[in-house]
Computed example of a mutant assay.
Amino acid sequence: MPLPKIADARKLNAEELAEEILAAKRKLFELRFQQATRRLEKNHEFKHTRHRLAQLLTVERERELTAQSSEEE
């Protein structure tokens, strides 16, 4: 399974982006829980989920900075 592309995250609107961020955080929690109870089978899911969360947060921050710079002008 390849890592998700940031272009996919940039296509999302603000509401979808917030939902995706929440879903990624929830999935990380579930993965940590599975690891603690020794039920985790796919260790690579940590990497993929953290990567996706970082992409989503980056896109969110880019949008904040763009909105902030447009307000200043």
Rank of each mutant, 00 (worst) to 15 (best):
M1F: 06
M1W: 07
M1P: 09
M1A: 07
P2M: 12
L3Q: 03
P4R: 06
P4K: 06
K5C: 14
I6S: 04
I6M: 10
A7H: 00
A7Q: 05
D8A: 10
D8E: 03
A9C: 11
R10K: 11
K11C: 03
K11F: 02
L12T: 00
N13H: 07
A14N: 06
E16L: 05
E16R: 04
L17A: 04
A18V: 02
A18G: 07
A18R: 07
E19G: 04
E19Y: 04
E19D: 12
E19I: 03
E20A: 13
E20D: 05
E20H: 09
E20G: 01
E20R: 13
I21Y: 00
I21M: 07
L22G: 14
A23W: 07
A23R: 14
A23S: 12
A24W: 05
A24M: 14
A24V: 09
A24C: 15
K25T: 11
K25I: 09
K25N: 15
K25P: 08
R26A: 15
R26F: 10
R26V: 12
R26C: 10
K27W: 07
K27S: 10
K27R: 15
F29M: 09
F29R: 10
F29N: 09
E30H: 07
L31S: 03
L31K: 02
R32K: 15
F33I: 05
F33R: 14
Q34I: 01
Q34K: 15
Q34G: 07
Q35H: 15
A36D: 01
T37N: 12
T37S: 12
R38M: 14
R38T: 13
R39Y: 02
R39L: 07
L40Q: 03
E41P: 01
E41C: 08
K42W: 11
K42C: 13
N43A: 13
H44D: 15
E45T: 03
E45I: 05
E45W: 08
E45G: 04
F46K: 02
F46G: 09
H48C: 14
H48K: 15
T49D: 01
R50F: 09
R50D: 08
H51W: 13
R52P: 00
R52G: 03
L53H: 05
L53W: 04
A54K: 10
Q55N: 11
Q55K: 03
Q55R: 04
L56C: 03
L57N: 10
L57H: 01
T58V: 00
T58F: 02
R61W: 08
R61Q: 14
R61K: 13
R61H: 14
R61N: 11
E62C: 10
E62D: 08
E62K: 07
E62A: 06
E62Y: 05
E62I: 05
R63G: 03
L65H: 02
L65D: 01
T66A: 14
T66W: 08
A67C: 00
Q68S: 14
Q68N: 12
Q68F: 11
S69C: 04
S70N: 10
S70T: 13
E71A: 11
E72N: 12
E72L: 15
E73V: 05
E73M: 04
